[in-house]
Design a protein around this nucleic acid. Structure first.
Lengths: 117, 117
DNA sequence: CTCAAGGTATGATGCAAGTCGTACCTTGAG
DNA sequence: CTCAAGGTACGACTTGCATCATACCTTGAG
């Protein structure tokens, strides 16, 4: 399991949201790909599905007429214990960063040794 | 603490390595910024420092003649229990993805419902 | 003081990622 | 069969990121 891919996959808000919604179901049911209401078009969703698959976070099953996502909870919990809980928490919080993307705008808080004096 | 920023910060191999090396020291000593032997130039390192600071992963102290990084272990462990251990583990593994960047090259393994038949 | 060392700021550059439109494929519904 | 629904593939576009070169700043060493 490639840490770089996993982190890169979860750096995107839409993907983080999908994983979080999947993780929020304790029964780990498969979920229709179309049931995620993301603010992106079909083609973009397909793109996100791929990223999540390649990161090893979800499995996708093709039903011809539609497909489903299944969270690979076991693998994830094994390698990243606590990670899914983190995403679920973010999902249920009032923060604005949950739904939209994260076009990180400039802001450079200096932690300790302030130099901007 | 913004999940998006944290994941984005750790998606890069150089930054992941720095955090991992810091985390590998159980005493949490500050470490000279220049002591990381990354395959990048000075300006790029500075860029990475900034990303790590803005993600809330490290604090940087300016000594004028040089500066030091300090891992914000408490914050990280509080929000992401087990995360640092993960990075340390990756650091000490033989995998090639540890040092170099992660220019994720194409590869699309289909998990369950194979469609490429 | 003078200077080298270590970081930063700024701008440029190349590439990857997120987004979309369009065309196409597959299957269930009618 | 015909068609709409749901995904994918492909290409295009835009933005952001990682990288570097260069110039500048700050401080400790001499």
């Amino acid at each position: 399991m490639d840490l770089g891919k996993v982190f890169a996959a979860l750096a995107d808000g839409s993907r983080r949201r999908m994983v979080a919604e999947l993780a929020a179901d304790p029964e780990d049911r498969e979920r229709a790909c179309g049931s995620f209401d993301l603010p992106v078009k079909k083609a973009t969703r397909t793109h996100h599905f791929r990223i999540l698959r390649e990161a090893g976070l979800v499995a996708q099953r093709d039903h011809g007429n539609g497909s489903t996502l299944k969270l690979l909870r076991k693998d994830i919990e094994q390698h990243f214990p606590g990670l899914l809980q983190l995403l679920v928490t973010e999902l249920s919080q009032p923060g604005e960063g949950t739904r939209g993307m994260d076009r990180r705008q400039p802001s450079a808080p200096r932690q300790v040794g302030e130099r901007t004096h």
